[in-house]
Write a protein that binds this DNA or RNA. Structure first.
Lengths: 355, 355
DNA sequence: TTTATTTTCGTGCACGTGCACGAAAAATTT
DNA sequence: AAATTTTTCGTGCACGTGCACGAAAATAAA
């Protein structure tokens, strides 16, 4: 459409054709004010007449500001769920390092809202050009989001998302659907009358975190079961991640009481907590479905203890978030879609390579 | 590790500390010769002493050359396999357009090696800075790859790969494994004695293309079947994509002769060719497994005609290829791994969204 | 009309690198 | 030693944009 004939159009070209100086063109390009209505209109017209597009390189070179993309995260051990988020963020950081955009991570204690607020303050002080924001404590996340909005700093939700429309983008998983899919994979090709019952293993957690996305997943799961296996019993077992011994004992007693049940599911990312029990009580007909590609889960999958993992490329979420922000910083481009739901990947022992 | 204290190190800094001019530093940075051994060593030393890293923006700004990334592709109709490759390539193109790197596609007729050679010549004439190269005609692809090597132009294989180590990178699928996985998904939770037989639908194709990657997939499939269902019969049916009527008739006669068979598989990307027959002869117990996320396949999946699709994110392959090449052009960085095998995605009707 | 104030705009340098041109230094030939 | 060739190197401009400084023009106040 535009004339591709030769050279790129520069600010100087626009200036000449509009009969002003490049300084003035620059002013309208950046809405910096101090331009008469008449010149502005003329310049605007010339700009899209020529199809002017700014030169990213020259722009970044001239603009000395050092950009920082920040992320606030629970201080997690390795191979935790949040560690995946972190890895993706850092991967993105490496990618844009040569673009002169730095990344910074602000950690907090996931059992202390106080520490979250503190980390949030530090994040604000670092004056970032963009923020990756996985919601944890609902209210405090709101507060932080508002503070960012106020300063005109774009923030991207990952993992889950608050009811807030001021965000720059969102990368996460369709939680409800993932539960639905989970139920399907758990019961695939199992006739109705043959399904004796299902065990849902859950975690005793303190209620600090006001919003737990896996609850939606649970709804999806229960809805599927109600639809296709209405008479199937759903048993809940609450375990404590800190006490593996107890877990194994609890499972033992449960299965002694319900020998017919061979379908197990966990809605959070810690299905690997069952590994000990499962490996000590092998059963070829058992089906175990879990979530998320933690290393421990992956190895449980490849050793056959877990049948299927449903993954959401947790690391890709934060990676995409970083890239979207850097694209905005560099090219002033927004992502195609504001809310991006990741694909649900089905992992079995046969396709875990190259994930 | 390096001192982050303040400013970025520039060529001028290096020059001063090495006691030379920036021109000389530039010469060693680009291996342009004309530098005495002594100065060179000194400069090299200073460079990694200071941890100098070139400024991408300044570099690209100063270097006026217009970069082109090219791709050579079969001239395909929409919703063909190659169309996915093309989409990914173009997507990558949009992404780097603002970086002043253009993309160009050279099309050829997939039934004419002659046209491939012609397109290859044109590609060379366009003097690209990088090439995305899906092998088709084996020998001619070799010839082209050699020509590129000779000119120092990096080329990236996608889809499949020749036995050639001069390539810059490779993005493709583990074909053998995908066949293995396919067999598993086809027979999942089916007891040995219950499996009456399997139908493999294949395509009569002219043998122009000397290398057909789906043959590897077939081996993987057969190996799995031989291992887990040694007595299961594998039937082959050859159809002509140009003659849908014949296809339907062939399928009808086949299933009249083998009423017990309900497991169907296709190794190429055209499982949608079976849609007509399948929709006219519904059978809830039938299992159909195919490959690749063509639009037509996707809709066959979501309408329940096809049970499972194994996908390799064909578009991501060429997309990644473009990004890898642009990263090399801009930042002189090579991808982490030379040969990259894509993940095999398992698609069912429940997780086709957001793919 | 003159002066003060505000609005509008032009000029010019800086950003860090690539590269051409030609000068200086070293090596070779005469 | 002088002249010539080759090697080595320094200088300076260009790339396109951002922004500060101050000048010019327009407007308001005297």
């Amino acid at each position: 459409m535009e004339e591709e004939n030769n050279k790129k159009i520069t600010i100087a070209d626009v200036a000449k054709l509009a009969g002003v100086s490049k300084g003035t063109v620059d002013r309208v390009l950046h809405d910096r004010g101090g331009v008469s209505r008449k010149s502005m209109e003329k310049i605007r017209q010339v700009i899209d007449e020529l199809g002017y597009e700014p030169n990213v390189y020259a722009s970044m070179l001239a603009m000395r500001k050092e950009h920082v993309i920040a992320c606030i995260l629970p201080d997690s051990i390795k191979d935790d769920y949040w560690y995946l988020v972190r890895e993706g963020f850092e991967k993105g950081g490496e990618n844009i390092a040569s673009m002169n955009i730095r990344t910074r991570i602000f950690l907090y204690d996931q059992y202390s809202p106080e520490s979250f607020r503190k980390a949030g303050m530090q994040l604000l002080e670092s004056n970032p050009s963009g923020v990756v924001l996985p919601p944890f404590f609902k209210n405090d996340t709101y507060t932080l989001a508002n503070a960012l909005s106020l300063r005109g700093i774009p923030y991207v939700y990952v993992d889950s998302k608050l009811e807030d429309d001021g965000h720059f983008a969102y990368y996460g998983m369709p939680m409800y659907k993932s539960g639905y899919l989970c139920a399907r994979l758990l019961t695939l090709r199992v006739p109705q009358k043959q399904l004796k019952g299902v065990l849902v293993v859950r975690i005793i957690r303190d209620k600090m975190r006001q919003s737990d996305p896996t609850l939606n997943r649970r709804s999806g799961f229960l809805d599927y079961m109600a639809e296709y296996y209405p008479s199937c019993g759903i048993h809940n077992l609450f375990i404590d991640p800190q006490a593996p011994k107890d877990t194994e004992r609890q499972l033992n007693t449960f299965f002694k009481a319900h020998p017919g049940i061979r379908h197990i599911v966990m809605f959070n990312s810690r299905v690997h907590l069952l590994s000990d029990y499962l490996s000590r009580n092998p059963d070829p007909d058992r089906v175990v479905v879990g979530f998320d590609n933690l290393e421990k889960n992956i190895s449980a999958l490849s050793s056959g203890l877990v049948s299927v993992l449903i993954c959401q490329h947790t690391d890709l979420q934060s990676y995409n978030a970083v890239m979207a922000l850097s694209d905005y910083i560099i090219k002033h481009k927004r992502p195609e879609r504001k809310d991006n739901f990741m694909h649900m990947d089905i992992l079995t022992s046969l396709n875990i390579d190259n994930y």
